[in-house]
Structures are given as C-alpha cells and as structure tokens.
Design a protein around this nucleic acid. Structure first.
Lengths: 76, 76
DNA sequence: GGAAATTTGTACGTATGTATC
DNA sequence: GGATACATACGTACAAATTTC
C-alpha cells in the first residue's frame, strides 16, 4: 500500500483514507494502538509531519486518541 | 504583546490566548478578517507553523474559519 | 485576459523537549 | 538510565486560491 504524490489528493488525506480502511477491515483493532509515527513514516515514505497531520485528523474526527509517550489508539 | 518561550505553556497556546483576548475586546471584530499568517509571524516573532497551529486551533474550536487565498475570519 | 502580489495549503527536513515503558 | 513515542518549534520550498492592477 503506497501513497501517490502525483494526484491532487493531499498525501495526508490519502493516508487518512488508508488508516480508516485498515481500522474498518480490522487490520488495526478498536481499542488497539496504531503504529508509531516513525513506523508509518517509514512504511509510506512520507515526512513525519505528514503522518502527524493525518493522525491529528483522525483525532479531530473522534476516530483515535493520542497520548504523549504512549501512542495513538483507535477509539473502541 | 509578546509571547514568552521560557514558560511551559506552548507558544501556539499563548498565541491562541492572545488572539481570543483580542477578539473579545474587539480588536478583531466578529465577521472580520484576522491578520495574515505572515503578519502574525512577524508581530510575535514565531515561525509560521506556530501561527498556523494556533489558527487551526481557533478553527477547530469554531471561533474562526479559514479560506485558501483569502484569509482567516472570525466567526460572527 | 493575464501578470503580479497576497494568503492559505501541502510537504519536506531538523532539533529539542516531554512522557512513558 | 536507556529506549521508545508523541509534542513543540524552527526553517525552507513550492502549490493553489484569491485579489489587484
């Protein structure tokens, strides 16, 4: 699964869509922890800031929660 | 009005407080446009990213709205 | 119509601080 | 103390939308 820098949809938006899809198909379980920012950065080949932008969007939408020092968790 | 990098409150948070105070005291009018990101960056001596962080917080709280190419407006 | 200026949006990189394990 | 993970803050560059001339 990769992101495409050549289409008009921003990378962070594409990443949101991938993460949401993975939550819905059970790849990431509700109540479970998402991969770390660095992990996602490496997997998708984007900057950490882009990963954070996507994650913060999930948080803003109430899909996830973030705790400093622990990680970002999918809301049950 | 300046921000203080030496206290624990993040700069973007301090900036939010200043902007909210200015909205409440009428310096920035409801329905009116806030100063541009570059203006705020210069006035407060912080990075544009810090200004954007503060503004996005206002948007998330429903205090302001942003339009690409136009500006950030205080909600009436 | 079109070029320039203004303003927000996206994306990158780096460094350091704070919290948790 | 060390390793891991998120948080803050700086800087840069270019894209996209709007306004102005």
């Amino acid at each position: 699964m990769t992101l495409d820098p050549d289409i008009s949809t921003p990378l962070w938006r594409q990443l949101v869509d991938v993460l949401v899809a993975r939550i819905e198909d059970g790849t990431y379980r509700k109540g479970g922890r998402l991969p770390s920012e660095v992990s996602l950065q490496q997997e998708f080949g984007v900057a950490r800031g882009t990963v954070r932008h996507a994650l913060q969007h999930l948080v803003a939408e109430g899909i996830a929660e973030t705790t400093n020092g622990k990680g970002t968790y999918v809301r049950p």
